[in-house]
Design a protein around this nucleic acid. Sequence first.
DNA 1: CTCTCCGGATTGACGTGTCAACTCTGCAAC
DNA 2: GTTGCAGAGTTGACACGTCAATCCGGAGAG
Lengths: 162, 162
Amino acid sequence: MNDDRHRSMPTAQQLRIWRNYIETAEVLRTRLASRLQSESDLSAGDYQVLLALTEAEGRTVRSSELADLIGWERSRLSHHLGRMEKRGLIGRQACVDDVHGIDVVATDAGAAAFRAGSVPHLRAIRELFIDALTPAQLGEVEDLTAALRRHLERDPASGDGR
Amino acid sequence: MNDDRHRSMPTAQQLRIWRNYIETAEVLRTRLASRLQSESDLSAGDYQVLLALTEAEGRTVRSSELADLIGWERSRLSHHLGRMEKRGLIGRQACVDDVHGIDVVATDAGAAAFRAGSVPHLRAIRELFIDALTPAQLGEVEDLTAALRRHLERDPASGDGR
DNA sequence: CTCTCCGGATTGACGTGTCAACTCTGCAAC
DNA sequence: GTTGCAGAGTTGACACGTCAATCCGGAGAG
């Protein structure tokens, strides 16, 4: 079949689909974040960090591992941890086995805030996303995102030239 | 069929699908923005604003209409226009027919920057998104986002209680 | 006429993200 | 030993978004 598909610009219809796709995801992200914020005073970033920490042994993870776990750049994590530390959600302490490492630990307050936020957050995900789709459609979403993922990994293109 | 679907928390699999979905969209957004930035020195926001302006009569749109067109809050637009004005991409001037209104107009430099950025941006969309999917899959994306959209519109839930 | 309210737009404060520059310590080369 | 490089983390500058407060000029109520 015609592989000039690989040379031409997107058609108007393709563009429309793209725009709807990315805007819908954006709306979902914003709605979820706003509900999480108002229901438990946590940002989406706080939630990701606390999720990784509370799942870890001793609620503690080395900073670099944490960055890998949630897929953040190191400086982004550093800034965010600074803000969370100021709010008493996490603590930072020198790592025992690695002089360079920093252990990040969820405080009791942090773990409590996560537990409190978790249920409403999961409910929001169900209400806004899961309930919008039939099980069959959910399966389609899975396949499609897998296809997109494969394509993205195949194309380093930007960011890390690993 | 069992409508306790509407009372239970998401399953592990549903959560996995959700996470993949939202993270994939996020990666796409970031990659696109980064390519747009490096290829034409425009942010995604700049692009949206300039797209709406260059499509309008006289490259001019009233500020409030512009906000509606691209679906932004007024204050977000105001901040962004301030930054774009400082860079000489757009201008602002009092509106003739409405004392309160502000006309936003794309400068020559702004229109030129948009034209220059447009082709590489469209190419990036094709490479990162369109090329990842077969035409049939693209159709599925369209249906799924439509379903999500319908669901979101049916559920005001947060933000504007319109 | 004055007072209040309304809608368009702006502003300031603050959290968030990215990029580049920097610190600090260990380790290997010489 | 000192030079310098590499990896972990931090910092500063700046762009971006949101929220609440504000400014401003017209329209009605009295």
